[in-house]
């Protein structure tokens, strides 16, 4: 026998009221990544077969740094949001889903920080 009213059972099961933020940021980072992604592919393509000195020198420009920093932030933010949707779609077990979403967010944040610190080191030395 249920002692809870229908209202009590239904409460709190609706919208999480935070989805718009995710949706919007996924689009904003997507739009940002159109020019930044194309820039990075071109940049990487030419440096891939260049010498260490050329690659090192490329990161001494504030313009390269600004573009690279923006690219890294947008990339890992977008990756993190995208992977979250995939976990949410395919994992029905709450704890597994939560763990993987958190794990993905933390991994993306860490990789972004590692990338940023690395290029900052190159820029400053």
């Amino acid at each position: 026998m249920k002692y809870e009213s229908s209202l009590k059972q239904a409460q709190g099961l609706g919208s999480a009221k935070s989805g718009v933020h995710h949706w919007l940021l996924q689009r904003i980072t997507a739009i940002t990544l159109i020019p930044l992604g194309l820039w990075f592919v071109g940049f990487f393509l030419l440096l891939l077969t260049s010498s260490y000195e050329d690659a090192h020198a490329a990161f001494l420009s504030p313009w390269t740094m600004a573009l690279a920093v923006s690219f890294i932030i947008a990339l890992f933010y977008h990756a993190s949001l995208g992977m979250q949707v995939i976990w949410e779609d395919y994992l029905s077990h709450k704890l597994t889903r939560w763990t993987l979403i958190m794990g993905t967010h933390l991994l993306c944040s860490f990789l972004a920080i590692l990338s940023l610190i690395s290029i900052l080191k190159v820029f400053l030395t």
């Binding site: 090192h56 890294i72 890992f76 990789l111 990338s115 610190i117 290029i119 080191k121 190159v122």
Partner: peptide, 13 residues
């Protein structure tokens, strides 16, 4: 693949 770029930056540093 984003790991590739991260490692590229790390290798450069």
């Amino acid at each position: 693949g984003s790991l590739l770029w991260c490692l590229w930056f790390v290798a450069l540093a």
